[in-house]
Design a protein around this nucleic acid. Structure first.
Lengths: 322, 322
DNA sequence: ATTTTTTTGAGGTGCGTACCTCAATTTGAT
DNA sequence: ATCAAATTGAGGTACGCACCTCAAAAAAAT
């Protein structure tokens, strides 16, 4: 049988009240007594039953996902999975909610974070580009007892190194490897496209990409990142510009999660198969592009796993464990 | 406030005892009354509090991982993660245990499964090649109320389609894509190596590999699968044979989770860089091989995620949800 | 030695559910 | 109408823990 607080009290030769004081770090316990209890915890291998504890303190986990408001396919998958997880984990007393806002505007995001009430929310998963205001707002969140986790994109690991999503530097490096191998011995330029280079994920992918391309494939050189800002006209224009001023573009790396815009612009500007094309995230669009050879590789992450990972980390932080 | 059984009783105009009878499917309730309660559940959005329920019924989850006994690096990572998850989820009343046995011997495995007592174990994750005896043993397990999930390798989806691990057909297809693109326009043979082709994961990888290679890269043809049986001498011999009888081997696909044996044999039999080499699972060995160009690509899965997925599925099944 | 302060114990209540017993009520069969 | 069977209700105890109060005991200060 698993030891309970009662067993612990007996083993430590103290009362249940004292065990409770020690376990929940309440004041007014002699140092020596605390040690008696902690020793006993080790000795009998006591493990707090979190379900019972949460029941007693009526705890429920309320987590919020702050996401961009673009209507892209990958983001839809994420929100679907959030809704699914919300249903699946309802019996575990967790409720998940997604809120869409202009995550590219640090003011809006910081204001939203500032308005969060610890009485309503226990943790937030934030998908937004890095910005000083946001970082400050997150620090203030932590002070108010709301836990925040960078989700996919995001802020530098504040203190602890937990971040939900793939290793973006490694993803960029993989893209470079594939690009170099697929292109082969020819020499030329590679076009790199992002929604905005202000996003940390794009920066990290670019970093990983450049590292490998420079060291392993010196015949290829990557052009400065083209930014789409989610604007079709702008994307078409800058992309056409790049293609005409650099006729030797052998590859295109689309770093942003939403590949549709750049890929459509590319299809309009150049015939299929001229460039080795690598994109991110599996969506109906990228999948179709892969099958019709308009894309040569997709680097994808599983939306369901992403949501569950965020949930797992937020819950662990709320419980103050690991 | 979240509705409780008490609220449900009130909403359905019945007593708590009847609510309990309906919720736990106890006999002796009029059909019309059952409907009254289920309607009320829908109406007020009642969700059973699993933590409280498990507390009351003193439930704890005891799951067992049955793994091969080979000393390979990937398997070590898995067992490490099992131990880690065992620690991390102890406060959630789950205990994980790993047992190593000769999973290639269906008799041993079936006997082990047959000896499992529902009083000791709630669920099992099984990593073993497919075999009729094992499938039967799993069916009998289910009858005794012990839930089983194929882990990485394994049995066909018995009824439900849950399986823990990557989509092996897709992995094989990816390997073929990379192989074809890396090799380029040359024509020749590709060597495929597995520990044993009796394992379903190898079969599925082979299936996916052949599908893509045949349809997309007709210049390449894959040789019959070479089996290592985990035996170094045998591996070296058969591999050398294959290389001499087919001087035009342009690529090697190592399907087994333990790539070390085949890769060492390959290094001994052929100079580095003669063949495009693709393997599975990230281990210190394969990582080093990747960096020194003895391997061109690794298709990997995250051991921690694998273990947590198995845990999540086993727990869901034990709770009879989804 | 007395007072004050610190530390500890004893005991209770409640969280939401499971599971049990016994009586009360309703329904169906004769 | 009578009896048996089926159905429902009322109430209790338990699970492991949090959190509260009040008194008792021990230690420290005077």
């Amino acid at each position: 049988m698993r030891p309970t607080t009662k067993d612990l009290a007996e083993a430590a030769q103290v009362s249940l009240a004292t065990v409770d004081r020690v376990l929940n770090a309440r004041p007014g316990v002699n140092e020596a007594t605390v040690r008696r209890v902690t020793d006993a915890i080790e000795r009998i291998g006591f493990q707090r039953n979190l379900a019972a504890a949460n029941l007693a303190r009526q705890r429920h986990y309320r987590f919020l996902f702050l996401l961009p408001q673009t209507g892209d396919a990958f983001l839809h998958q994420i929100t679907d999975r959030i809704a699914e997880a919300n249903r699946a984990f309802a019996s575990d007393m967790v409720s998940l909610q997604a809120r869409h806002l202009d995550t590219n505007d640090p003011h809006v995001l910081a204001k939203t974070l500032g308005a969060l009430d610890p009485a309503d929310v226990d943790g937030v998963a934030i998908m937004a580009p890095e910005a000083p205001q946001v970082r400050d707002a997150m620090a203030r969140l932590a002070a108010r007892g709301i836990h925040a986790v960078p989700f996919l994109s995001g802020q530098p690991a504040g203190g602890e190194a937990d971040f939900v999503g793939i290793d973006n530097r490694a993803a960029g490096a993989t893209a470079a490897h594939l690009m170099g191998r697929f292109i082969g011995p020819r020499a030329g330029h590679v076009l790199v496209i992002a929604e905005t280079i202000k996003a940390r994920d794009s920066l990290e992918r670019r970093w990983g990409f450049d590292g490998i391309l420079g060291s392993r494939f010196p015949a290829l050189s990557a052009l400065p990142t083209v930014e789409t800002y989610g604007d079709a006209a702008r994307t078409a224009r800058t992309l056409a510009n790049a293609l005409t001023s650099h006729p030797d573009i052998l590859g295109v790396y689309v770093m942003s999660a939403e590949a549709r815009l750049p890929l459509e612009a590319l299809a309009a500007a150049a015939p299929v198969g001229c460039q080795v094309t690598i994109a991110h995230e599996r969506t109906p669009f990228t999948e179709a592009a892969l099958l019709t050879d308009r894309v040569d590789a997709i680097i994808a992450q599983n939306p369901g796993h992403l949501v569950r990972s965020a949930l797992r980390i937020l819950r662990a932080r709320t419980d103050r464990r690991e």
